[in-house]
């Protein structure tokens, strides 16, 4: 049965390799370290957001506010650095805890007041986007020596590859999230809540603090993604990251995490984002395909994975029922 659990993960990985192989066979320069490292640096912010979304979805919830939090943290960083002349690190030190508070408040609404995550984080999305537009409607350029240093920092690889600071930040976050989800008590609690929150409560899982921490963490990662996004664009803009929550959710699903909660792997989400990135790269390399095909292909992929999950979960349910008929 264990192998079935990993099946969606293997399929995503195989599709990723297959598409990359086809691209490399069709186009010169597709299968190069430069393309791979661009894949990571162009999608670093999406990767970071999607990691937080994985946590939320494994717990059985959803967070629609992340795209807006990216915009809000970007605008806040832009204002503090460009207008108030703060040092970027000082600005980040204010933004990240503020995001944690924002997420924790959503967690409180969800757990204490028993409101649906979907509608609470939708309100959170309006609030964050509203705050961002209230702070500044125009894009704020960020010009600071720290940003230049961040942009120049990196490790050169042979073949034109380049591991930039964004990729490094993502890798650190990835290691931390994997440790947290797969090797810590907190992670076990998240899986337990996603499996069945009432059973988790009865088993003594601290449901309240865990739920609040999950949403706080998701907002923190979104704020971090917003900061990485400012490294990428050298500006903060209130309309940045529109619809990014959907990309993140799609990546999580393609990565094999069940939207009903309780099952999934952090690394699957990374594969999901990379698969979406490779599709985009392929379409850019091809040149004759239009950008809307990206959306259609991602939609079809989503459909394929959801049907696969259905088949798998029905089969595991059947075998589980057959194995435990005595227990009714």
């Amino acid at each position: 049965m264990m192998s079935l659990r990993y099946l969606p993960l293997w399929i995503t990985a195989a599709l990723l390799c297959l598409l990359f192989g086809i691209g490399g066979w069709q186009f010169d320069g597709f299968a190069s370290l430069a393309v791979v490292s661009n894949l990571f640096s162009d999608n670093a912010f999406l990767l970071i957001v999607a990691l937080g979304m994985t946590l939320v979805i494994i717990s059985g919830g959803i967070d629609l506010s992340v795209g807006a939090v990216i915009a809000l943290s970007g605008v806040a960083a832009g204002l503090l650095i460009s207008q108030y002349q703060w040092h970027p690190l000082l600005a980040f030190a204010l933004i990240v805890p503020a995001a944690a508070l924002f997420g924790a408040l959503m967690g409180v609404l969800i757990h204490v007041y028993k409101l649906q995550p979907f509608i609470v984080t939708l309100a959170g999305m309006f609030l964050a986007r509203g705050l961002a537009t209230t702070l500044s409607e125009e894009s704020i350029a960020i010009d600071h020596s720290f940003y230049d240093a961040v942009a120049e920092f990196g490790i050169a690889l042979p073949g034109g590859g380049w591991i930039g600071s964004s990729t490094l930040i993502f890798m650190v976050v990835l290691v931390l999230v994997i440790m947290l989800m797969h090797y810590s008590r907190f992670g076990a609690c998240v899986y337990a809540i996603g499996g069945n929150s009432q059973s988790a409560q009865l088993m003594g899982v601290p449901v309240a603090s865990t739920t609040i921490a999950i949403y706080a963490l998701s907002s923190v990662l979104a704020a971090l993604a917003g900061i990485v996004f400012t490294f990428y664009t050298f500006s903060g803009y209130a309309l940045a990251g529109v619809g990014m929550e959907l990309d993140a959710i799609a990546a999580v699903v393609i990565g094999g995490t069940l939207l009903t909660g309780g099952s999934g792997f952090v690394i699957g989400t990374v594969l999901g984002v990379l698969l979406m990135g490779v599709i985009q790269t392929y379409i850019i390399f091809d040149g004759s395909l239009s950008s809307w095909w990206t959306k259609i292909v991602i939609g079809l992929l989503l459909f394929g994975f959801i049907v696969l999950q259905k088949v798998l979960s029905r089969r595991t349910a059947l075998t589980a029922a057959a194995g435990s008929t005595a227990h009714g």
């Binding site: 799609a250 239009s290 809307w292 990206t294 259609i296 991602i298 939609g299 989503l302 959801i306 259905k310």
Partner: peptide, 22 residues
């Protein structure tokens, strides 16, 4: 197919706009 409504309609939300552009 008994797919969760959020997911089932997310499909068309993502792909539908692509179809309209097509």
């Amino acid at each position: 197919l008994r797919i969760q409504p959020i997911v089932a309609t997310l499909l068309l939300m993502v792909a539908g706009r692509g179809v309209a552009q097509l």
